[in-house]
Design a protein around this nucleic acid. Structure first.
Length: 262
DNA sequence: AGTTAAATAT
DNA sequence: GATATTTAAC
């Protein structure tokens, strides 16, 4: 491989962890109550030290499904609370998709937050758009007290520029040599990998780490290949489910590219 | 599925 | 009463 290729990757790999920063980015929306109720984690496993997105659910109700399948669907989900952390993730996702082609489903996938629904994102997106609108007109200092959440994470400049190019910078087009991705794009992938590392540490402390590192190395060998948009989503998706796979003892290997559909 | 508007909950 | 989030309607 060429020098510059190994360069960006080296940087990428070095900048990795920083657990403090990762903690708030990962983890699920499954409330402690629910996790406990459905035995989603080891009984003696203490509560995760992370700050899970808060949810208001004083009266945890359960729609008892006798068939016992997918509680997630029959359960009355607690009212979602958009914490600054969650919102930041949201903004990041939108930024990387490009404001114009950022739609609920895609945003949701990119955020890869367990328990987060498309409706949740759609709703938030609607509100966020209103905020942006109100922001382009109102100079920028007429912020209502209700905008605290939105103000918590800076609005990427290009969000306010419907006229200028935006897709080129933040939209990962089809067939982009992975080695030619922009810094922020690599950074994003990097974060995803970091999230995996973190998840591995908290869940299956140990052999999990090896696999996530494997992904990193593997991608190094695949620099020459191209990263399709679909592949990108696939990667995010895999990363999202990685921790779960580990818990189920699956000897899963993450792949950078989705399996061929024949 | 995405948007918008009405309904609820906090 | 206002606002944040959900639900219904298109």
């Amino acid at each position: 491989m060429r020098e510059e290729d190994s360069n960006w990757f080296a940087k990428w790999e070095e900048e990795l962890p920083s657990p403090e920063e990762l903690i708030p980015l990962s983890q699920s929306l499954v409330t402690p109550d629910l996790a406990l109720a459905f035995d989603l984690r080891s009984p003696n496993q203490p509560q995760p030290q992370t700050t899970p997105p808060q949810q208001t659910n004083s009266s945890a109700e359960f729609a008892v499904d006798s068939s016992g399948d997918e509680p997630a669907r029959t359960l009355k989900r607690p009212r979602l609370v958009w914490t600054p952390q969650l919102h930041k993730r949201f903004v990041d996702a939108v930024a990387h998709l490009g404001i114009k082609n950022a739609v609920p489903k895609t945003i949701m996938q990119l955020m890869s937050v367990d328990g987060l629904t498309r409706e949740n994102v759609a709703s938030h997106l609607q509100k966020y758009r209103l905020y942006l609108k109100r922001m382009q007109s109102g100079g920028g200092n007429v912020v209502g007290e209700s905008d605290h959440l939105f103000a918590s994470s800076p609005v990427p400049t290009h969000f306010l520029h419907p006229t200028a190019r935006q897709s080129s910078d933040h939209f990962v087009p089809s067939f982009v040599p992975i080695a030619s991705l922009q810094h922020h794009q690599l950074q994003f992938l990097h974060r995803q990998l970091s999230a995996v590392n973190f998840a591995s540490q908290t869940n299956n402390n140990g052999k999990a780490m090896d696999q996530s590192l494997f992904l990193a190395r593997q991608s190094q060998h695949q620099q020459q290949q191209v990263l399709t948009r679909q592949a990108s989503l696939h990667l995010h998706s895999q990363v999202a489910n990685y921790a779960d796979a580990l818990e189920q003892g699956a000897n899963t290997v993450l792949t950078l590219f989705p399996p061929r559909e024949n």
